[in-house]
């Protein structure tokens, strides 16, 4: 079965890609399998200058999930352009660059710079990171601000722009419509849910950052619900993510309205999860009577 799908800026061999922040720049996984097998790679967020991130501990396990507060650790856009992207160019795989910052100017600078890299074929605007003091989620919880940022980044980006939505909002449809109107070429959803865990001995938060982003299978129903909610209201494609761990999960995301999916937390548990899902997807589609990827996309919304 042909798993290929074309989305703005993305000529995908298959609809499976690792999610940003769960895969670094792919180097660790390249020791395990050929990165060219992947539909695309969403690389770790880039900011204008290097960031070390938050104090430790940065992670905590939760029932069927985990909390993280890494804090956008990255070597800065210039170093990513000079070392990571040229290295990734050795693989036949489109790169989606995750763009982050503290101010509108930061986002514009990173987007303008990184969209020039020959193998970056799309941007993912990170307006939903819950783990940084400034920027991130602050831009993604208000429709007007999200639209303003999207518009500014669209003006300078030489490749299509996907906006990564935060689930930490009361009306996700309003944000989705606002960024679509501002020129977004696609949506990626969802980012992590804001959470906290307390130490039973001390009574204090386990994470040094106090709060963190909840990810993993525990959040899958929230992601499915939000994609299902947004899909009828937008014309731009959705790349879905949130707790995917099986080929059946991929199908559920496609049914809800995603055209492709990203795998995050499960890369930490099973580093071979992406190639495994790619291998299993055709049989899973067939098992449920589907003869193409297109038949699965948005199936839930058709009578």
């Amino acid at each position: 079965m042909d798993l290929a799908i074309k989305l703005p800026g993305l000529d995908l061999k298959n609809p499976i890609m690792p999610a940003s922040g769960c895969y670094g720049f792919g180097r660790e996984f390249s020791e395990l399998y050929d990165l060219s097998e992947l539909g695309a790679i969403m690389i770790k967020a880039a900011t204008p200058t290097a960031r070390f991130g938050n104090p430790l501990p940065r992670v905590a396990e939760t029932p069927n999930g985990m909390l993280n507060a890494i804090g956008l650790q990255n070597p800065g856009v210039d170093k990513i352009m000079a070392t990571e992207l040229p290295w990734l160019a050795g693989y036949d795989v489109p790169i989606i660059a995750n763009v982050a910052g503290s101010t509108l100017e930061d986002y514009v600078h990173v987007a303008k710079t990184i969209s020039q890299a020959p193998n970056v074929t799309a941007l993912e605007l990170n307006i939903s990171c819950p783990n940084v003091k400034e920027g991130g989620i602050a831009f993604g919880t208000c429709p007007e601000t999200a639209a303003l940022l999207t518009k500014a980044v669209k003006e300078v980006s030489s490749v299509p722009v996907y906006v990564k939505l935060s689930p930490n909002v009361t009306d996700i449809v309003a944000i989705a419509k606002a960024v679509e109107a501002a020129g977004a070429d696609g949506l990626t959803m969802i980012n992590t849910l804001l959470g906290m865990r307390l130490d039973l001995k001390t009574g204090k938060p386990v994470l040094a950052n106090q709060t963190g982003g909840l990810s993993g299978p525990a959040i899958k129903p929230v992601a499915i619900r939000m994609i299902h909610q947004v899909y009828p209201h937008v014309k731009i494609p959705i790349i879905g993510m949130g707790g995917i761990s099986t080929a059946e999960d991929v199908l559920e995301f496609l049914y809800a309205g995603a055209s492709a999916v990203a795998v995050g937390t499960m890369n930490f548990v099973d580093p071979y999860i992406c190639p495994n899902l790619i291998a299993e997807l055709p049989a899973t589609l067939k098992k449920y009577g589907l003869t193409s990827l297109e038949e699965a996309i948005g199936r839930s919304h058709r009578s």
Partner: peptide, 16 residues
Amino acid sequence: ARMACGIGACMACVCK
């Protein structure tokens, strides 16, 4: 250190 992936991908266990 507390780790998530153990293979260098998640950046949970970094030191300077």
